[in-house]
Design a protein around this nucleic acid. Structure first.
Lengths: 189, 189
DNA sequence: GATATCATTTGCCATTTGGCAAAAAAAATC
DNA sequence: GATTTTTTTTGCCAAATGGCAAATGATATC
């Protein structure tokens, strides 16, 4: 729970009373490896904060191939904003890559926070802005660099994450096939 | 100006007084084709709203190639959020592809809106969230689909925009060379 | 620790894309 | 409307990546 409070305090000041109110609205859950936090076609009804573990966001492209769009690890929010905010079906799956422990807020709890805590709106804006910007920034080099460069800069930036993620997921994240990624790794050695 | 007000009203209710206050803080500017709205290395100090024209966001990748990251056209905000919000140097150029007419808010004007108009914060949150989500959604298929599919779906979604944009910019947006794009177009005919 | 299961690597060859330079087409300028 | 200038297309060949299947390696299970 402390990780969560520290995370939030980065984005705005909160007093002790507000903090304990936030804490009272959170629930801790576990998700087993391979299980889903949320699914495509369903409406996202929870905001999650990862205490332990790695999840991925994935979908199926035009050719029916399963594509990993993001990895998300500890001390990050996990929520399909589009679906959660607008009550529309989610376009992607959020799946646990390892066993996970999350803090979750139901939609009603989240709205209570918005209605009760002055400034929560601003905190949420900053958090989601930052998260979305990060996604855009991570995604951009995947289009403009060649596969080897993409792999190397992923490894450099997310060394720890890379070791917790199967090669097949990483390959689809980088936009190449698993065998191509395997060959790229061979060439680098 | 009406386009701007209608745009804002999609994201929240505002009374007549608030609207005229917002209007009083806006300035209209023109940008000639090829000129820059903001530049990499400089801090973004304006929020723009495109009344007329098309701009692009671009940067230089590892190999020094100029990469077009987004196109932005009428009735959309243009601002480097990361730079504007955090006073850090921008990582990209925003350049006019056609002659443009914009409504702009200086940083101080924008902050006045935030401080004066109750709920402006929420409006901004919704606008920027939507814009960022859109960027992420536009960008994702560029990694997971092959070049022909990327081109076709771009043409399908942004037919009008495609005709206002040079091939070289479109190619770098799609993550391929200009000659490859030209060959893809040939094969489709 | 043998066996089954899953993940990764490799071989072979087809397809796609890139790099470079020249040609063709289109647009701008006088 | 002829001449530049810019944009787009094309030819040639090299390099990168994909597709498929088999082999190898790693991990889990009994």
């Amino acid at each position: 729970m402390n990780e969560w409070i520290n995370y939030v305090l980065q984005f705005g000041n909160l007093n002790a009373q507000q903090i304990s109110f936030i804490e009272s609205k959170a629930a801790e859950i576990t998700i087993a490896k391979e299980d889903y936090f949320s699914e495509a076609g369903k409406i996202a009804r929870q905001v999650g904060f990862i205490l332990e573990g790695v999840l991925r966001v994935c979908y199926y492209n035009n050719k029916g191939e399963e594509i990993t769009k993001y990895f998300i690890d500890e001390n990050n929010l996990v929520v399909d904003l589009e679906s959660f905010d607008n009550n529309v079906p989610s376009s992607a799956y959020v799946q646990a890559i390892t066993d996970c422990r999350l803090l979750v807020f139901s939609k009603s709890a989240w709205e209570e926070l918005l209605n009760t805590i002055v400034g929560w709106d601003a905190v949420v804006r900053k958090i989601t802005n930052k998260a979305l910007l990060l996604k855009v920034e991570r995604r951009s080099p995947l289009v403009s660099e060649d596969a080897t460069t993409r792999y190397l800069s992923f490894m450099e930036k997310y060394t720890a994450l890379a070791n917790r993620v199967p090669l097949s997921y990483l390959a689809s994240y980088l936009g190449i096939t698993q065998s191509s990624l395997s060959r790229i790794r061979k060439n680098i050695r």
